[in-house]
Design a protein around this nucleic acid. Structure first.
Ligand SMILES: [Mn+2]
Ligand SMILES: [Mn+2]
Ligand SMILES: [Mn+2]
Ligand SMILES: [Mn+2]
Lengths: 218, 218
DNA sequence: TAAAATTTTTAGACTTGTCTAAAAATTTTA
DNA sequence: TAAAATTTTTAGACAAGTCTAAAAATTTTA
């Protein structure tokens, strides 16, 4: 139905347009797809003709309902495969993204349905991101960046807003895994570094940068 | 490394060249790939340049060692995914081929290694075909067509040489599943139909056509 | 073994997705 | 608010993979 390339563009628009569904610029798409703006323009025309996006020259794009449904389904596939890779095949959370990038394009509704069932209908992927259900409903958890927490506040690590291998491996090494409890002990005036207590027992200092990428359920 | 299309051509050559590795004609490849002879010629040139096949104009092709290794690896992936779909996701043996045709092209050695392990290192796929090992060794079972068996002979259904859905569903319906024991009771002079006893209890008559496609371990 | 039939290759074209370079539109800056 | 900077689109090209039509080679047939 849609080519792998078309799917990647739709997914990019979906991720860039955020929860509000704001218009997305040609350049921002080019950046996440790692391609040239001119290629993006070509593809936007094509997707508009297919009724998947609303496109007005020079004014960026938004997804149509049809486009959003398609995009959400790709995200669903991606995240289900990531769960499979971690839960069933024993991959680490920093190893699965690229493989899932390929697997998400396998076109078979029944495959996804059966996979979902096999995995026990997981609600989140290995990075804490929500898995859209069959009908395209996405349950967005209310998470906050560690960087906006106040001293004394505590919560549970429930997601990450950066997915690079280095970052995820750093978290592993520090013991900052999903589900860990943290409590803010101190925020350094000097550079915003955060000193926190992990699982009520270990003191850890993380940079302000890292704190911004660690998402907490209060 | 190799495109999906290139992989499909390599697999076609592999399957067509048989165990002896005999030369394969342009037309026969076109037929299994469902494409035109001219397209095949183009691709053969390309694969020859990559050192994957030996190609001399008008004389058909054979795989090089490198080409054979590549082809066997694709077959390995295909069959492992088929096992996954049947054993883990609950698909029937007649439903898995097309999905595996896509999954086999996912490029990740570690994925295949882990999948193999997850499945318990299966030796055969849901159709009884051998799964090549990591080093490209294929253990060919010594199976015979039911159609060449004599009255009184018995054996175990261990493979099929036709993989169409209709045929596989027909076998399911008749109870002729892999692992079933059969004994030849009678072969009709008139049209070669075979009357056999299934699992020592049930009489079944199959056409000579069907008998040719059911493979038996004696 | 020469004509006929078949197979294979060549020539030229088309689609998809990409690129570079340049033009046009928009936004920022001064 | 006009010039400068940036973003976006247009124009034209290219590689991969495919197709049709026609030419060339091979095989079959009589
Ligand atoms: Mn991912
Ligand atoms: Mn993820
Ligand atoms: Mn198959
Ligand atoms: Mn099979």
């Amino acid at each position: 139905m849609n080519s792998q390339s078309e799917e990647n563009y739709l997914k990019a628009v979906y991720h860039l347009s955020g929860e509000t569904g704001k218009a997305v610029s040609t350049n921002s798409i080019a950046e996440v797809i790692c391609t040239k703006a001119s290629s993006v323009t070509d593809m936007l025309r094509k997707l508009a003709k297919k009724g998947l996006i609303n496109y007005i020259k020079y004014q960026g794009v938004t997804l149509t309902d049809k486009g959003r449904n398609t995009a959400v389904d790709i995200v669903r596939r991606h995240r289900l495969w990531e769960v499979f890779l971690v839960e069933k095949l024993g991959f680490k959370w920093d190893e699965v993204h690229d493989i899932a990038e390929d697997l998400e394009h396998i076109e078979s509704e029944i495959l996804v349905t059966r996979l979902d069932e096999f995995l026990g209908f997981p609600k989140t992927d290995p990075h804490g991101d929500p898995i859209p259900d069959k009908n395209g409903k996405v349950k967005v958890a209310e998470l906050v960046k560690t960087s906006i927490m106040k001293v004394g506040q505590s919560g549970v690590i429930s997601g990450v807003s950066e997915h690079s291998s280095v970052f995820l491996q750093y978290l592993d090494k520090a013991g900052l895994t999903l589900g860990s409890k943290i409590k803010i002990k101190e925020i350094l005036e000097y550079d915003g570094s955060v000193l926190l207590i992990l699982n009520d027992k270990k003191d850890i200092t993380i940079s302000r940068e890292a704190a911004k990428s660690i998402l907490i359920a209060l």
